[in-house]
Design a binder for these strands. Sequence first.
DNA 1: TCCTTTCTTGGGTATTTTGCCAAATAGCCA
DNA 2: TGGCTATTTGGCAAAATACCCAAGAAAGGA
Lengths: 100, 100
Amino acid sequence: MELSIRKHYEARSRVIKALAHPTRLFILDKLAEGEHCVCELQAMVGADISTVSKHLSVLRQAGLIDYEKRGNQVFYRLLTPCVHQFIHCIDEVTRTPAPE
Amino acid sequence: MELSIRKHYEARSRVIKALAHPTRLFILDKLAEGEHCVCELQAMVGADISTVSKHLSVLRQAGLIDYEKRGNQVFYRLLTPCVHQFIHCIDEVTRTPAPE
DNA sequence: TCCTTTCTTGGGTATTTTGCCAAATAGCCA
DNA sequence: TGGCTATTTGGCAAAATACCCAAGAAAGGA
């Protein structure tokens, strides 16, 4: 595989890796309904707040979400609504039993 | 996060994890053009054939591809063309620089 | 200033993923 | 059967991820 081609697929996979975790998919669904602060997401997810913060950092570095500080809270919001078409496709795959 | 909800997101993330590798994304693109045997994919990818075979196994277990044996060759083909709409979305994300 | 709340970062450990080699399996043909 | 090609599987070491705890940073109120 040629280097420039490889770079292209690596860029794609970086974004997909950010999506490849149940907690992060859950967070994206919640943010699709509207912005949430970290403490709200932490309550919904039910993990340590530092864990939730790190998941949010992964999604932000992938360019999927952004945040805004207001007071001592940080509100996150979805940047890419098209992620949900994609999730729709994934759900079609999960509904179809794998071969064998 | 409630158990049944968690199961749902775990199922989604299992499929997305299968997509989260540059070599596997490359293979999916090649299979979108038509079926290929392992040796053809190996030549295009340029990795050890056992590595390519394992990537194909990951994609198959996720329900994204299937295979057919003909003679002593194994031909793989794409099961889910919708994967490409979704790649289109990913490319939009990669074209937009991440915040900060 | 001090205390509280909210969030991020550092660090250690545990788990998962990756990629190569070597060995095993399977089909074809002589 | 023997040899050849195509592919999968086992195993291992290296790299990447995940999660919790503890510590740090930033904002607000007393």
